[in-house]
């Protein structure tokens, strides 16, 4: 119940924000009869109804994960974001090995097994992507490669 109430509220607020955003859209004097605002306004209206329906008739709560699982998922999120930022400056191999090992460890917490898997996966995927599929990847930091 509570989850759907909160979600419904978020949807309602989001729909109102989307409506405000639609009013702020610049329009040009050369526009068609409908203009760029009407369709977004229709969408915000429909979402508003959906949000209100969820508030009025919430479903039973889903089974939310325990605190430990939340922690694991947050760590995974941080790892993924860090991976997105580092893959260009640091090259493919090192970030991939670390990120794969981390995700493997989060699914099955065995340190050595994950580390070996991460390193192996990173090398195998690099060979497949670079030489099998011909993608333009760099193995190591470009600064080192010259």
């Amino acid at each position: 119940m509570a989850s759907d109430r909160i979600f419904g509220l978020v949807v309602v607020i989001g729909a109102l924000a989307f409506f405000a955003g639609a009013l702020a859209i610049q329009t040009s004097f050369m526009s068609d009869p409908l203009g760029p605002r009407v369709f977004p306004i229709l969408i915000s209206g429909a979402s508003l109804l959906c949000g209100l329906a969820m508030l009025a008739r919430p479903d039973p709560d889903p089974e939310w994960p325990a605190r430990a699982a939340w922690m694991s998922m947050s760590v995974a999120l941080v790892v993924l974001v860090a991976y997105a930022y580092t893959i260009v400056p640091l090259g493919f191999l090192i970030p991939t090995a670390i990120a794969s090992a981390a995700i493997g460890y989060l699914i099955e917490p065995k340190a050595v097994q994950s580390a070996v898997m991460g390193a192996a996966l990173s090398v195998v995927l690099f060979v497949i992507f670079k030489f099998g599929l011909g993608l333009g990847l760099f193995a190591f930091p470009r600064a080192l490669m010259g």
């Binding site: 993924l80 893959i87 990120a99 794969s100 090992a101 493997g104 097994q113 996966l121 995927l125 993608l135």
Partner: peptide, 17 residues
């Protein structure tokens, strides 16, 4: 624990390339 890291990396490399 092998499959999911693989899926992640293929997704990232795909979108990146």
């Amino acid at each position: 624990w092998v499959l999911m890291p693989m899926v992640t990396m293929v997704s990232f490399v795909g979108i990146f390339s």
